[in-house]
């Protein structure tokens, strides 16, 4: 084998090693995206479990707000029943809106604030909302990493050959949630 053959062999070995490295990187990123999505699922489940307790605790006080409570229950059921990611996103966004209107309505009932159980449930639900929001941020960051790698040259070749696709972002319908402050330092 001449020197040219030797160099070619080294190049081929380097290319194969790079291919394996890029493929493993993509697999790792896809696992991280799946893990991030499961984190969202855990928090959504937590929210679904909390809502019936909250509705039970406040319905004695909010007898005149039956429609609001029914909306919350309906939205929760839709979110539980949703099967694919797109339906789930829509149902969860709707549930967030109905919960927000429930909190707004409950502000008008000072007796609610004196009830420790209701306040504790509200704190838990606020915490769960934050967890969902943070889990969604984390999921979107991981998704962005994967999508950037899948679309960038030369890793897009590896992704194309091995069947890696772009992941879907968890988007928010609510304009207030979209508006992030410009971070300048």
């Amino acid at each position: 084998m001449g020197i040219v053959g030797f160099v070619l062999l080294i190049l081929v070995v380097a290319l194969v090693l790079w291919f394996f490295g890029a493929y493993n990187g993509l697999v790792q990123m896809r696992q991280q995206v799946e893990n991030a999505w499961s984190q969202i699922d855990v928090q959504l489940k937590r929210r679904h479990d909390l809502i019936p307790n909250l509705v039970e605790a406040v319905k004695g006080y909010l007898s005149h707000e039956r429609q609001t409570l029914e909306n919350v229950i309906k939205a929760r059921q839709q979110a539980v029943d949703a099967t694919n990611i797109k339906d789930k996103m829509q149902a969860e966004n709707f549930l967030t809106q109905t919960l927000r209107s429930l909190f707004a309505v409950s502000e008008r009932y000072p007796d609610l604030k004196a009830n420790h159980n209701v306040m504790a449930l509200q704190e838990e639900l606020t915490s769960t909302e934050n967890r969902i929001s943070f889990a969604r941020q984390f999921y979107n960051e991981q998704t962005m990493r994967l999508n950037t790698t899948v679309e960038s040259v030369p890793t897009n070749v590896v992704a194309g050959m091995t069947g890696f696709n772009k992941a879907e972002f968890f988007e928010v319908d609510d304009a207030a949630h979209r508006q992030a402050p410009p971070v300048k330092f």
Partner: peptide, 9 residues
Amino acid sequence: EEVGVATGG
């Protein structure tokens, strides 16, 4: 715990 979620656990 919320912040723990943000760091991906």
